[in-house]
Computed example of a mutant assay.
Amino acid sequence: MGLVDAWGGTAVGWFFAHLIEAFYNLFYALLHPDLWLAWLPYTNGNMPEVEIKEALMRFIYYGASVEFFFVVLAIFLVVTVIGLIKNQFMWGCVWVLESIANGVGRFFAWAGLLMVLQQIVIIFMQRVFAVSEISMGFGVAFSKDVSWWAEELKFYNAMIVCMCVTYTFVQGGHVRVDLIYSAVSHRTKRIIDMIGSLLFMIPAAILTWLYGWFFLWRHLVVPNPSASDTLDRLLTKARALRWNVETIGFSPNGFNAYFLFKVLLIAFTALVLLQAVAFFYRSYLELIEGEESEGKYLDKDPIGDPTAELVAKIH
Rank of each mutant, 00 (worst) to 15 (best):
C162W: 04
L84V: 08
C164T: 09
I123S: 13
W7C: 03
F142C: 10
D229N: 07
W39D: 01
S99C: 07
T10K: 01
K189L: 12
N87R: 13
V140I: 13
G196E: 06
F255T: 01
K86R: 11
Q88T: 01
W91S: 14
H186P: 09
N46L: 12
Y167C: 07
M136F: 14
V170M: 09
Y61R: 03
G249V: 07
A312R: 14
K296Y: 10
V221Q: 00
H18P: 00
A312H: 06
L113T: 09
K53S: 04
A150D: 13
P48A: 03
I75V: 12
A55R: 01
K237V: 14
W110L: 14
T10Y: 04
Y181T: 04
T307F: 12
A64D: 02
R190L: 06
P225I: 01
D305Q: 06
P203F: 11
F16V: 06
A64P: 03
A38W: 06
A74L: 12
F142A: 10
L77P: 05
S185E: 06
V272L: 15
M47T: 05
V79R: 06
L271M: 15
W39G: 02
V94M: 02
I20W: 00
G249Y: 08
R187Y: 05
A257S: 11
S226E: 15
T269S: 14
E152G: 12
W149M: 03
L97Q: 04
A130S: 01
W36C: 08
D305A: 03
H186K: 10
Y281A: 05
N224M: 09
L287F: 09
V311T: 01
A29C: 07
K154C: 14
H32I: 12
T247V: 15
D301Y: 13
